[in-house]
Simulated scan of single mutants.
Amino acid sequence: MLSQKTIDIVKSTAPVLEVTGTEITTRFYKMLFDAHPELLNIFNHANQQQGRQQTALANTVYAAAQNIDKLEALLPAVKNIAHKHRSLGVKAEHYPIVGEFLLKAIKDVLKEDATDEILQAWGEAYGVIANVFISVENDMYNEAETKEGGWEDFKEFTIIKKVEESALITSFYLQPKDQSIVSSYLPGQYISIRVQIPGQEYTLNRQYSLSSAYTPEWYRISVKREAEHDPKGQVSTYLHDKIDVGDSLEVSAPAGDFYCDVNEPTPIALISGGVGVTPMYSMLASIADKNAARPVTFIHAARNKEVHAFAEEVTENMSKLENGKSYVVYEQDDANSELTGYLNADKLEKMIDQNSVCYVCGPVAFMESVIQSLVKIGIPTERINYEFFGPSLAIETK
């Protein structure tokens, strides 16, 4: 437990962190990697280069300062981050290292304003927060390793099938090299893959949604080809161009807190944009297999037909449902499209049952627009679930 004095000091620094948080976290990562370059084998280099990781950490630190006296308010965000840490192999021994350089970065940026008293308070607070993460992640590691078909950290998988789903998206079917079954997952969860690209000093990690209903023989991920010059395109380009049937990838056990309860009877709306269709399709296929009586509305937005993935598979699974509706919205006018333009409140109001629980995934701008539209048409926020691909850029507390 933290003393009231420590709590007061940490909370009083929140306004300063709101202003300088990203500067502190940028300095933190620079100092951390200079001293411990081996940690670059864990962190997503693209998120570092784009500043997304720095912003995400700054938001987390700021939220922790605001809520240091009621850490239970942060638990949903802690679990979200902990899932990612577990899938990447972040361990308890990494936390003291992070704490050391976070305090050094605070001192480096705030200079004389970061008094010994402030640094001591933040050191104590960090220790409490780190222990929360370590405890949650230990439970996740134990669950991943001990469940049927589970394993620890990363395991070698073989590509047994590679399928082009659209002009941009290719699916990879992954089977354990030891021919064992794969552990089950909840529809919407993801796996991490780790690759060593020739010419790269460090391994690269990426998280991809599992894009099918569960089968014990294999996993499927469906990867969008990003622009090669874009930092986040390094791994996707490598997978598309260099990885083929018979090649191997290192894979971590399924993780993530964005998933649906397949067995619920409540109407569900699955809304996706672009490659955000991957977790949505997993949910659809799982419901079609296990709860065909559930009312399902499947809505997908794409630029055009050429980049529209899983069209035939969606149609096949919709036919299994007793009460299913499917809509496609193409941004560009196309003779094959049912609707054109952008997905907005007017369109959504005509598609979605007001009693639905809604799941949304896609590019950030798409998700922001859809979520605002859902609220506008009267869907309560507690029935709107969404997943950002990448580090959490916002920490919401209630």
Rank of each mutant, 00 (worst) to 15 (best):
N67T: 05
D113R: 14
P37R: 02
A63Q: 10
N67A: 05
V109W: 13
D153T: 06
P96D: 06
N67Y: 09
D113K: 12
K91H: 12
Q120T: 13
A82C: 04
F101G: 02
V90H: 01
Q53V: 14
Q50M: 15
K79F: 07
L39M: 11
A63T: 12
A121F: 14
M140A: 01
E124Y: 08
E124F: 07
A56C: 01
I68G: 06
H83A: 15
V128K: 14
F133I: 11
E143A: 13
I81W: 08
G89E: 02
R52C: 05
I118Q: 07
R86H: 13
E137C: 01
D116F: 09
T60S: 15
F157H: 10
A105M: 08
G89Q: 03
D139G: 09
N67M: 04
E152L: 09
A114I: 09
V128G: 03
A56F: 07
A121V: 10
E38T: 08
L71G: 04
E112A: 10
E93M: 02
A130W: 13
G89L: 04
S87L: 03
Y126R: 06
M140E: 14
P96K: 07
A46H: 11
L40A: 08
D113V: 15
V78N: 04
D139Y: 04
V136L: 04
A77R: 01
Q50S: 12
L40I: 10
V128E: 15
E137A: 01
A73T: 12
A58I: 11
V136G: 00
T115H: 08
A82V: 06
I129S: 04
H83Y: 15
Y62T: 12
K111T: 14
V78P: 02
W151Q: 02
N41T: 01
N47K: 08
F157Q: 06
I106N: 00
A82K: 03
V109H: 07
D69W: 10
H83L: 05
F154H: 00
S135A: 11
T55R: 15
K155G: 05
K155H: 13
E72H: 10
Q54F: 07
G123A: 06
T60A: 15
L103M: 07
